[in-house]
Computed example of a mutant assay.
Amino acid sequence: MLQPFIHGFILALGLILPLGVQNVFVFNQGALQPRYSKVLPVVITASLCDTLLILLAVLGVSVLIITSFWMKMILIGGGFIFLLYMGWTTWNSKLSNEKEEMVHKFSLRNQVLFAASVSLLNPHAIMDTVGVIGTSSLKYQGEEKVIFAFACILVSWIWFLGLSLFGRISGKLDKSGRFLLGLNKISAFVMWGAAVYLVISLFS
Rank of each mutant, 00 (worst) to 15 (best):
A195Y: 08
W157A: 06
E144S: 14
F80Q: 03
T89C: 03
G30E: 12
L52S: 06
F69N: 05
E101H: 03
P34G: 11
P4H: 07
Y36H: 14
M86D: 04
M73W: 10
A12Y: 03
V43K: 02
L202I: 06
V61W: 13
L202D: 04
M71N: 10
S204F: 13
V39F: 07
K105N: 01
L163K: 04
L121T: 02
S37V: 15
L52V: 15
G162E: 01
S47N: 04
M71T: 12
F69V: 13
L202W: 12
N23D: 06
A188M: 11
G78F: 00
L198I: 00
A57N: 05
K99F: 00
Y197L: 12
L202R: 11
L11Q: 11
S96C: 12
A151T: 05
I74N: 07
N23I: 10
I169H: 11
M1C: 11
G77R: 07
G30M: 07
S170K: 12
F80S: 09
V39T: 13
W159A: 08
I200A: 13
M1V: 14
Q141E: 06
F5C: 08
I153Q: 01
F160L: 09
V196W: 11
I158L: 13
W192T: 02
I200M: 13
R168I: 02
Q29T: 03
T90Q: 07
W91D: 02
V26S: 10
F25H: 04
L108E: 06
S176I: 12
L173R: 12
G131A: 11
S176D: 14
V132N: 03
V42A: 14
N97C: 09
V196K: 01
T67K: 15
G87V: 07
M127I: 15
L64I: 12
H7W: 04
V155H: 00
K175W: 08
L55N: 04
I133W: 02
I81W: 11
V42K: 05
F189P: 01
S47E: 02
I66P: 01
K94N: 13
T51L: 13
G20C: 03
A12H: 02
F106R: 00
S156K: 00
V43N: 04
F160H: 09
G8Q: 13
L121R: 07
F82Q: 09
V42M: 05
N28M: 15
F179V: 14
G134C: 11
K94P: 05
V196T: 08
L180V: 06
I186K: 08
S156Q: 00
L83H: 13
S93E: 03
W70D: 12
V196Y: 04
Y85M: 10
V43Q: 11
W91C: 08
V61G: 00
F160R: 11
L32S: 02
G182V: 11
L173P: 09
Y140F: 13
L17F: 13
M86V: 07
Q33Y: 00
I16V: 15
P34K: 10
V112L: 01
L32W: 13
A151V: 14
S68H: 04
G8S: 15
V130M: 14
V118A: 04
G60E: 09
S164D: 09
V132G: 06
M1F: 08
L59E: 10
L40S: 07
L180H: 05
I133N: 00
N184V: 03
G8T: 10
G60R: 10
P18I: 15
